[in-house]
């Protein structure tokens, strides 16, 4: 798996051997960046040469399509597949910008009750062997929508922002994921504002880690370019090298098992002096 990371990998020739990793992206609280993380990690993995499908599990409130910029090409959706109205390949929207990137959109005019756990499980199983990575964008909340999104996943990425409400909800979600038997649960701390952390106005990554006590797989800084990319419908990972785009690249690398050190959290958080020295001497400024 890890050895297949080379760009432009021959996905077709190895299709039958694919060892699919199904990863749910979740958070509990809404608006913390699940969809952005899903879109960018999916795009990044496809750019690494893997065959990827991003699934929008937020039935009735779909958004992953617009964030990925694929909203105009949707014909069928996940519920159509589950109900047998179409075949899976018909519902997959292929991204024309990046090879091997697909979206399975949510139904917009249905509710989360349209899908059962068993059906989601079957859907996930039907993707095994077909893709290298399946990223599932979970709806907010802890009800059936979230449970459906998580049921077929092997791994979970929990997204939290350094705010009391978000960390609290993340804690609840981690507890639920553990009770579902998910063994690989990792945290992405999103929208970090190092200057505010340093001046003692905001929770730092180290604070969040201390409280949640799960593995940290990435830190994404607050970055205006996320808003721009969402407006354009072009995941950051595809286009530029903003701090957030670099953070997603590193997270993708860590998911692939690459040893990409997380920056010294406390360097970033507390020792403002060290951070500024790094900015002067480091080639690319802050390391995320």
């Amino acid at each position: 798996m890890i050895d297949r990371k080379k760009a432009g990998a021959s996905a077709e020739t190895e299709e039958s051997l694919m060892d699919t990793r199904i990863i749910v992206v979740t958070s509990g609280k809404g608006g913390v960046g699940k969809t952005t993380v899903t879109a960018n990690l999916s795009a990044r993995m496809a750019m690494e040469g893997f065959k990827v499908v991003a699934i929008d599990a937020d039935i009735g409130l779909r958004n992953l399509d617009v964030v990925m910029g694929l909203e105009n090409r949707i014909v069928f959706n996940m519920v159509d597949v589950i109900e047998g109205s179409c075949k899976l390949p018909q519902a997959l929207v292929r991204d024309k910008r990046v090879e091997n990137l697909y979206l399975l959109p949510a139904a917009q005019t249905r509710t989360k009750d349209a899908v059962s756990k068993e059906q989601m499980m079957d859907l996930c199983e039907s993707l095994r062997g077909e893709f290298d990575f399946v990223f599932i964008d979970s709806p907010a909340g802890i009800e059936s929508g979230f449970q459906n999104a998580a049921v077929g996943a092997d791994e979970a990425l929990v997204v939290a922002t350094p705010e009391v409400s978000s960390v609290r909800d993340a804690d609840r979600i981690i507890g639920l994921l553990e009770s579902f038997g998910k063994r690989s649960i990792n945290l992405i701390v999103n929208r970090v504002r190092p200057a505010m952390v340093r001046s003692g106005k905001m929770l730092g990554v180290s604070d969040v880690m201390e409280i949640l006590a799960i593995g940290l797989i990435g830190i994404v800084p607050e970055d205006d370019s996320v808003v721009v990319s969402t407006n354009k419908g072009e995941p950051l990972a595809m286009a530029n090298l903003t701090p957030a785009a670099k953070a997603f690249e590193k997270i993708a690398g860590r998911i692939l098992g690459k040893d990409i050190p997380l920056q010294d959290i406390d360097d970033l958080d507390e020792r403002g002096f060290l951070v500024s020295l790094k900015k002067i001497f480091g080639r690319r400024g802050g390391r995320y």
Partner: peptide
């Protein structure tokens, strides 16, 4: 107390109840 510290303390307390 800094807002950072109070956020952390409030979180720790609220999570005791939650957990």
């Amino acid at each position: 107390e800094s807002p950072r510290k109070s956020a952390k303390e409030r979180l720790q307390l609220v999570l005791i109840h939650d957990r």
